[in-house]
Amino acid sequence: MTYLPYVIAAYAVFVLVLVWDFVIPQLQIRSELRRVRLRSQRDSNRAAPAELSR
């Protein structure tokens, strides 16, 4: 008897979990850098009108 469907299912679980393990930190790094960039843009926009009013 072949147990190939069980083998394929096991390897699929392995691949899926590793893909999750790879993708999550990449998304975290990207979102963190984006958050910092947006915050620094907000800060510089807030500083600009103050300089104009002087």
């Binding site: 393990d21 790879f22 999550i24 930190p25 990449q26 975290q28 790094i29 963190e32 850098l33 958050r35 910092v36």
Partner: peptide, 16 residues
């Protein structure tokens, strides 16, 4: 690879 990537993400979060 995963350890470095996840540690980098946490490091960036702490140092943001």
């Amino acid at each position: 690879g995963s350890l470095l990537a996840r540690a980098r993400a946490d490091n960036l979060r702490r140092e943001s």
